[in-house]
């Protein structure tokens, strides 16, 4: 989780693919060094290359996918910067600074649940694939407002994904917090994770996930823990709107599970210089760009 292991560089990158994915836009660009270095959960500061001064600053975008020399990002056009980026087409050039931030700690073992909400699902595809490649059983819970956003789940091809929409227009109706809560807190000392989830046949049995709980959680003395010391809790990797992340934190606390959450903030420099992107944590303000964007969920003051 040391952000400073990999120095970031500034690259001029040609766009080689730009296509709509529901309400979002998927942009692929050539960036060999970033493709080689970026870790799941790291982000890039991206803007249109050139002298145009409006929009002025790059925007932080999570790495959605690495494909050989290509880096893919997903853009939700909501403000002056992202609307401009969503207008980038094949042949346009991007100014890209990265890779930045700490990324997720991927060193754990055992099953993992990836929980994404809205555009926050984008970087989790990279996370889920990496977890899968490490031999960890991965299950993805993705929540969206409606079908327009939820089609992003298509980008999680070959990964076990359950889609939830608030209006029920795609997947199941409701928030991801309900199934997450069910998965975690239905567990107790005698039942394995896989036995308690309807569609997780590929999840390990209790025996094979006995080392899931890392040293960090050993300090948990939460009386509400359902199975904190049975060693079979999946680790949670989450990215999405704050209310969703807060719910993930609450559920995981109740059950004694560990969650890493990737937070979003307005950024200017992306490297830790400007102090602009701070979030409230138990240790005071911390910079999302350089001390995050991934934090243990229990570090954040929700």
């Amino acid at each position: 989780m040391d952000a400073q292991l990999i120095p970031a560089s500034l690259f001029d990158c040609p766009v080689v693919e730009s296509r709509p994915v529901g309400a979002y836009r998927l942009i692929s660009f050539v960036a060999r060094e970033i493709a080689a270095l970026a870790r799941p959960g790291q982000f890039l500061m991206v803007r249109a290359a050139g002298q145009k001064l409006d929009p002025l600053l790059p925007r932080p975008l999570g790495v959605h996918e690495i494909d050989s020399d290509l880096v893919k990002v997903l853009i939700e056009p909501v403000g002056r910067g992202t609307i401009s980026l969503a207008g980038m087409r094949v042949g346009d050039r991007l100014s890209v600074l990265g890779p930045l931030g700490n990324g997720f700690d991927m060193t754990g073992e055992g099953p993992a649940i990836v929980v994404g909400g809205g555009i926050g699902a984008a970087p989790l595809a990279f996370v889920a694939r990496s977890l899968s490649a490490r031999g960890r059983d991965v299950r993805c819970l993705l929540g969206f407002r409606s079908r327009g956003q939820a089609v992003v789940a298509e980008l999680f091809r070959n990964l076990p994904v359950e889609v939830y929409t608030e209006d029920g227009s795609m997947g199941k109706k409701g928030l991801v917090s309900a199934p997450l809560s069910e998965m975690l807190c239905a567990l107790d000392g005698t039942d394995s994770f896989s036995n308690n989830t309807s569609s997780a046949g590929d999840f390990p049995s209790e025996a094979s996930s006995a080392e899931t709980i890392s040293g960090d959680s050993a300090s948990s003395d939460d009386e509400n823990s359902c199975a904190a010391d049975t060693g079979m809790f999946p680790e949670i990797f989450a990215c999405g709107p704050d209310p969703m992340l807060a719910a993930v934190d609450r559920i995981c606390r109740d059950c004694g599970a560990n969650a890493q959450v990737s937070v979003a903030a307005h950024m200017a420099c992306g490297v830790g210089a400007c102090q602009g992107c701070v979030i409230k944590t138990v240790d005071g303000y911390r910079r999302a760009c350089s001390e995050g964007p991934v934090f243990p969920s229990t570090d954040i003051e929700w």
Binding site: D54, L56, G79, G81, H266, G276, I279
Partner: peptide
Amino acid sequence: PHRLYETAA
């Protein structure tokens, strides 16, 4: 926070 907000140029 928020401590930053981009405006026209």
